[in-house]
């Protein structure tokens, strides 16, 4: 496997971040120009801060659209499932690779989270992977992404440190997720209509008892991933030119449900 590590030097709006992740997935799926059978790990942040909805989440009935507008929050709908996330003080990772890179869906989820757990260990944060829950799943309308752990999630004292989601198209997958540097998920609760789920999130800053920068976490992940995932690695200082941001900047996509 030829891995490309992309550490995005600047924060981007939600539409561009989702457009880039989507373009990386398509690149792997098509094995097209620029991909050459490559796989990608992208580390990035958001500017401005952004509220993202899951692909099938009923955002129009779950969240207060007028309040979101009044607060001037940027919004985007992800290509992946799950529930709403407030992207502010965080490092976001995205892995786009052929499905066979790690095996089954669960093996993929586990491999990526084990790698992240190793990176956090380098930073002095010991985490555990949550056991698989029993019982019924929450519907897409059930509340914030960080309100519960789905099994295989990275947690500290039963509080979620990373929220991840995956999409598989053909023989390629994209998994991306938020590593919280500070905990600001109350924003999701603040714009939720009806019953507000209890948010059980924590952050690297909270666990460490100090503030931690994007660059410090990115370095730890870059070191860990080269040790864990075999293949050749190259690092790129900028993201690919192709950004599929049109779809993700379209309000009819963002507010389609």
């Amino acid at each position: 496997m030829r891995w490309k590590l992309i550490i995005d030097p600047v924060g981007r709006p939600g539409r561009d971040n989702m457009g880039l992740d989507s373009a990386l997935l398509r690149s792997v799926q098509e094995g097209g120009p620029g991909s050459g059978g490559d796989a990608f790990l992208r580390l990035y942040r958001w500017d401005p801060s952004c509220l993202s909805f899951g692909r099938n989440e009923p955002a129009t009935s779950r969240y207060d659209v007028e309040k979101i507008r009044a607060l001037g929050l940027d919004t985007v709908r992800r290509p992946t499932g799950g529930r709403a996330v407030w992207h502010d003080a965080e490092l976001t990772y995205a892995v786009a690779a052929p499905c066979h890179a790690f095996g089954s869906l669960r093996q993929t989820y586990l491999a990526i989270h084990q790698m992240l757990a190793g990176a956090f260990e380098r930073l002095g944060v010991t985490t555990t992977l949550a056991s698989r829950r029993s019982g019924r799943a929450p519907r897409p309308s059930a509340g914030a992404c960080f309100a519960l752990s789905a099994g295989g999630e990275i947690v500290v004292d039963d509080r979620k440190l990373v929220g991840s989601a995956q999409v598989r198209i053909g023989k390629a997958f994209l998994q991306h997720g938020s590593v919280l540097l500070e905990n600001g998920q109350d924003v999701v609760s603040g714009v939720t209509m009806g019953t507000i789920p209890r948010v059980c999130a924590t952050s690297l800053g909270e666990v460490l008892g100090r503030s931690i920068a994007f660059e410090e976490v990115a370095r730890a992940i870059a070191l860990e991933v080269r040790e864990r995932w075999s293949g050749s690695w190259s690092e790129e200082s900028r993201s690919p030119e192709t950004i599929e941001s049109d779809k993700f900047g379209d309000v009819s996509w963002t507010w389609r449900r």
Partner: peptide, 9 residues
């Protein structure tokens, strides 16, 4: 189809 942590075609 969307499961808790993955969307698939």
């Amino acid at each position: 189809i969307e499961a808790v942590k993955a969307v698939s075609e």
